[in-house]
Amino acid sequence: MDVEVTLPAEPVTLAPGVATRVPVQLRNEYGPQADVRVSVTRGRAGAWAPAEPVTATVAAGATVTVDIVLQPPADQPPSGTLLPFTVQAAIDGTPAGYATGLLSVALPVPVVGELVARTGEPHTFDLRLANDSDRPAAIRLEAKLDPPAGQVTTEPGAALLEPGDALTAVVRARPARPLMGAAQTYAVLLSVTDAHDPQRPPLFTATGTGRRPPRVSSLAAGIAALVLAAAGTAAVAISGVRLPFPGRARVAATTPAAPPPVTPVVVGRPFALVDVFPHRGADGGHAAAEAERARLAAAGMPVRLVDSLASDQLADEGAGFWVLLQDGFASPAAAAAYCTQWRSLAPKCAVTP
């Protein structure tokens, strides 16, 4: 009588001192009902692997699953290669079927984590890590951009997590901006590695995504094109130059120069965010934002008006925003005191650390 024995196709990864259950399928295709005894044959894994249950009753035409419990010793060194192990099925002491699988012994992964986009801060992510193992974990944090244009930093770049410790690291991306056109999507590729064993596969990886708007929004580019067209028409009218008509020789057309990029503006952290006006309407929302700035300034409140497209520190999804803010504070507490002082005039004032 033959019993068909099936093991998982993927190699089994074990950790020293940790029990791992591997399912084994027993199929009795042709014979009568039988009591099948399962064991791991001689070899390194034979001493680690009792079956649960040791004996299973398999009816004719039926399939039964039992578990092999693989548990290498706590002092078992990691294996550099895959090791074979063979599971045997026997009936009344007579071998009735075999299957061979592969295993490796690796150090346990000591950290778990998640990467979360920070609310209110564009291109900034919180990396939350925890050490759930019973041993210290020295880790190194590495991040890169895809596409690679720009910069990305992690704070801190390395740490020692004791058992039960947790850590929140800050990942700040500064992807390069396109000059104009549609907003571009980018990805932050994060990897946490063992600081003592750089050749070991990463302990944890994560990906964060965002969108980077152009320096010149589509609206601004359209307005600039209209202004250039109007200026060209006015120049023709003033100079008296006659435009070519059908049938006359045409003068080679020239391509107008692209509008200049927005001049970068530095915004220091922490800062107080007072109000936000979307880039919309004929003037891109500038008149409404300037009117609010003038009202606050007339009441004695110091405040700046900044185009979000000009600063890497400000959110600028879509067409961007006009942002009323005040910076230059020594600490978040000082920014909070500013908001408290002017709360009656600017009820939306909030601190961005």
Rank of each mutant, 00 (worst) to 15 (best):
V66S: 00
W48N: 01
G43W: 13
T57C: 00
V66E: 00
S39K: 04
Y30R: 14
P23S: 00
P50C: 01
R37I: 09
A51R: 00
L70K: 05
G61T: 14
T57D: 00
R37G: 08
R44K: 09
T41D: 12
R42S: 04
A34C: 04
Y30E: 15
G46R: 10
G61A: 08
V38W: 03
D35H: 00
A59C: 04
G46T: 04
V58K: 01
T55W: 10
G43F: 11
R44W: 10
Q25E: 15
V69Y: 14
V69G: 11
Q71R: 14
P50K: 01
L26N: 02
P50I: 04
L26V: 06
A59P: 03
R37F: 02
L26P: 13
V36E: 03
L26K: 05
S39E: 12
T63F: 12
Q25L: 12
G43L: 14
E29F: 13
Q33E: 10
V69S: 12
V54G: 10
V24M: 09
A60M: 12
T55S: 07
P53Y: 10
A59E: 12
V64P: 00
Q25D: 15
T65H: 15
N28H: 02
R42K: 08
V36R: 04
T55C: 02
P32Q: 05
A49N: 05
Q25A: 15
P23H: 02
T55N: 08
L70I: 10
R44T: 12
R42L: 06
V38L: 09
P23A: 06
T41M: 13
A51C: 09
G46C: 07
A59L: 11
A34T: 08
